[in-house]
Amino acid sequence: MFLNEILLLGFQRLGNYRFVFSPTLIFVYTFILSGNTIIILVILSNKLLQSPMYFFLCNLSFSEIICTTIIFPIMLQSLLRNGITLSLIGCLTQFFFFASLVLTESFLLTVMSYDRYLAICRPLHYSSIMNFRFCCYLSLACWTSSFLMMSFVIGILTQQDFCGQRNTIDHFFCDLVPILDLSCSDTSDVKFTVYLFSPLSVFCPFLFITMTYISIIRSVLSIRSATGKKKAFSTCTSHVIVVSTYYITLFMVYLVPTNSFLQINKVLSLLYTVITPLVNPFIYSLSNREIKAGIAMYLNWKIKMRP
């Protein structure tokens, strides 16, 4: 590696509007942190929410807190300074953690769909299968598998020659394609590795989630009681909305040709890194009675604890 520094352009085309845009991003970042933190605290402090679904929701909220913390501070600095300089190691580190957490969320959403499948389609076996130990194993598998995959990608990526002919990334964070554009050597090994892991980490989970919900819908439709159908569907509503938001934005970002529509891709990436973690606390708090009740109990408890 001969390239020492990378210029991250961020949102240079905003001009003076960046001073208006930056307070909005600070507010959004604060809300993402507080919203997901409240969900974690509410679940951990409420015994009624000690179930596998909420255990995985804690993991999902925690991953979103880390992911936004990796992206937002650097994005804000590049916005205020009209660009920011990063070391090559720093850029690769940001990409490693960001991509690992994206895969972690994909796996967690898959495990959550499996949890809903067991709860609705195999209710008699649910408690025996989804015990606390098995939930911990599934959670650990989600985190370790994603970080191991990205460690392999980063290992190959560090073998590339970055000879300093190009040192500018027209983006607000270090993503794979902009990093590969800086390389002056053959990138086919990196691309092959990514193409190999993409079906395992994104498309297979998406297919699995789709198949589980087909089974769930069939089981729910077989319920004769209208109340029973409504109750069964209500347990899946939040997860379906989150999955839809996650995969729609993800596919939009990585299926749009980056060379031809660079600015569009930047906007879509902004939607993905901002909108998804922003709306998730809303989705789980507004459409879930147990979460809303837990938040109310938690806030009442905090008020009573004040001197």
Rank of each mutant, 00 (worst) to 15 (best):
C58N: 14
N59Q: 10
S61V: 00
S61F: 01
F62K: 13
F62H: 12
E64N: 15
E64P: 01
I66G: 13
T68I: 14
I70T: 15
I70L: 15
L76R: 08
L79S: 06
L79H: 05
L80D: 02
R81K: 06
N82C: 06
G83H: 06
G83E: 02
I84Q: 10
S87F: 04
L88T: 13
G90T: 09
G90R: 11
Q94W: 01
F96I: 07
F97T: 11
F97Q: 11
F97I: 15
S100H: 05
L103S: 11
L103G: 13
L103I: 07
E105G: 06
F107E: 03
V111F: 10
M112D: 04
Y114L: 04
Y114S: 04
D115G: 00
I120F: 02
I120A: 01
C121G: 00
R122T: 02
L124Q: 07
Y126V: 01
S128E: 12
S128N: 09
M130V: 04
R133D: 05
C136D: 07
Y137I: 14
S139D: 11
S139H: 08
L140G: 09
C142T: 11
C142M: 01
S146T: 10
S146C: 11
S146L: 11
S151R: 07
G155P: 03
T158A: 05
Q159R: 08
D161H: 08
F162T: 02
C163A: 05
R166K: 08
R166E: 03
